[in-house]
């Protein structure tokens, strides 16, 4: 049986205590639900002498709905996805979260953990023995990115299902460090590097995610489509998260489209979104926007399904998500999704 390596395990009881621990031990790793870190440690592609758990910090708990939605970083995925207010007001977020892995895992995994989930690659998410047998890779202990050997940067892909949807909805992230805190648009938490995919200092702790009220179902049309092999368990090999705001005449005033698993960070399909501004939500405009979403996506041969085909699917899935958001009939066959969370 594959086991965890030994490490020192700290369970601080306040945010201040946790921040102090991190400041004192910059190499320490944070853990919340553990569903990302423990497998990574078991396979030794991440290492830790000290692990600091966030699960006892009262400041990071809970799910609060006022005008908007505030999610504590350690709110459990299952609690968010089943919350009646979230389902009613941010149904696409509930759908995205309900698509993460499997039900028992969502009982353990947290929203903060999912937003910060390590990038993935089939050359990386492997055991120590396996990685030794390929001479390691750029992301861990090696010098070559085997996905594209000429690439100077790691091409591991973002694996979060909540992140593209939260970005599309315009969520903010709150980060706390011993010297203060800051609130940033979530997309600014990410950068296009498979290794340093989080634009966050090591002493910063993600404490909250804030989803604006203007992104709820009363103001915004949104949808989330996820491509994966099975109807459960699997990470996305592509996801399309769209949020559209229209004026009373039905013309698009604002559009945000983010793609998952086709880059090292959630990919903003800005051309596609820009194209929709001022246009009605017709089949033709949506199809054209979807076509424009293809360009910024870089599906690589580092996950399930053929990479080239995943590229084709960027257009299909973006169009399907846009059509669903616009209320047009959905023509595409989704992979075997379990019942999608109803709005």
């Amino acid at each position: 049986m594959l086991r965890l390596p030994a490490f020192r395990f700290l369970q601080p009881k306040t945010l201040g205590e946790a921040a102090a621990m991190l400041a004192g031990e910059p190499e320490a790793r944070l853990v919340a639900g553990g569903t990302d870190l423990w497998p990574n440690l078991k396979r030794r592609h991440q290492k830790a002498q000290t692990v600091v758990s966030l699960m006892r910090l009262p400041e990071l708990r809970g799910l609060h709905v006022n005008g908007g939605l505030r999610l504590g970083a350690t709110a459990l995925l299952a609690d968010i996805e089943t919350d009646t207010q979230v389902r009613a007001r941010w149904p696409s977020l509930a759908t995205a979260i309900a698509s993460i892995s499997s039900p028992p895992l969502r009982n353990m995994g947290t929203i903060g953990g999912n937003v910060c989930v390590d990038t993935r690659c089939t050359y990386y998410n492997q055991t120590e023995d396996w990685r030794r047998s390929i001479g390691y890779c750029l992301k861990a202990e090696g010098s070559t990115c085997w996905v594209a050997t000429s690439s100077p940067t790691c091409l591991a892909h973002t694996a979060s299902d909540s992140a593209p949807m939260l970005c599309a909805l315009g969520a903010q992230a709150r980060l706390v460090a011993p010297d203060g805190e800051r609130e940033i648009p979530l997309e600014q938490l990410y950068q296009d590097d498979g290794i340093q995919y989080l634009a966050k200092r090591s002493d910063e702790i993600l404490t909250d995610l804030l989803v604006p009220g203007e992104a709820d179902a009363a103001h915004c049309r949104s949808a989330f489509w996820k491509l994966r092999r099975r109807g459960t368990i699997d990470f996305a090999v592509l996801s399309a998260a769209v949020a559209l705001w229209t004026d009373p005449s039905g013309e698009v005033t604002r559009a945000r489209i983010y793609l998952g698993a086709v880059g090292s960070q959630p990919v903003a399909a800005t051309d596609a979104a820009q194209f929709l501004i001022g246009k009605p939500l017709t089949a033709e405009t949506l199809a054209e926007a979807a076509r424009l979403a293809r360009k910024p996506a870089y599906p690589m041969d580092n996950t399930d399904f053929q990479a080239q085909w995943r590229g084709t699917m960027v257009v299909q899935y973006t169009e399907a998500a846009l059509r669903e958001a616009a209320g047009l009939p959905v023509e595409r066959l989704a992979p075997r999704h379990l019942p999608v969370v109803a709005g």
């Binding site: 099975r230 109807g231 459960t232 368990i233 699997d234 075997r336 379990l338």
Partner: peptide, 11 residues
């Protein structure tokens, strides 16, 4: 078991 795909309850 994650990447060697075997059908689940959903499939």
């Amino acid at each position: 078991m994650l990447e060697y795909k075997s059908p689940s309850f959903a499939d």
